[in-house]
């Protein structure tokens, strides 16, 4: 039951600096923990996050085991034109989630 929460302003003025907030549901199991019986719990993390603004990549991040569960990633960009933000999360065990948000630039 993976789900994402995205916060992108619906409207912005041309040239305005806007904040984008993303929250992805993921356990981010480090791969260093053991069960009560001593078996290693295999690593299961998100390894990569990227954001495209009308197709052009504007932000990318690599994620590592020390990052907490449900990674919250925020960044800023300049609102240049109306269109779509596409978000992609890729991780271990074939994890791949995407989300998108629309913006109107006036």
């Amino acid at each position: 039951m993976a789900s994402a929460l995205i916060n992108v302003p619906a409207k912005a003025k041309r040239g305005e600096i806007i904040e984008i907030k993303t929250l992805m549901s993921h356990i981010m199991e480090t791969g260093y923990r053991r069960t009560a019986t001593g078996e290693l719990i295999p690593r299961n993390i998100i390894t990569s996050f990227s954001c495209r603004y009308n197709g052009a990549e504007i932000f990318r991040a690599d994620l590592f085991p020390a990052i907490a569960a449900n990674p919250f990633i925020t960044f800023f960009t300049v609102a240049t034109e109306s269109g779509k933000f596409d978000f992609d999360w890729i991780g271990d065990n074939g994890f791949a989630e995407s989300a998108s948000a629309l913006i109107t630039v006036e």
Binding site: L23, S25, A69, N70, F72
Partner: peptide
């Protein structure tokens, strides 16, 4: 912030 609160997931 409901978009930052992981409980909302």
């Amino acid at each position: 912030d409901d978009t930052a609160n992981p409980g909302m997931l």
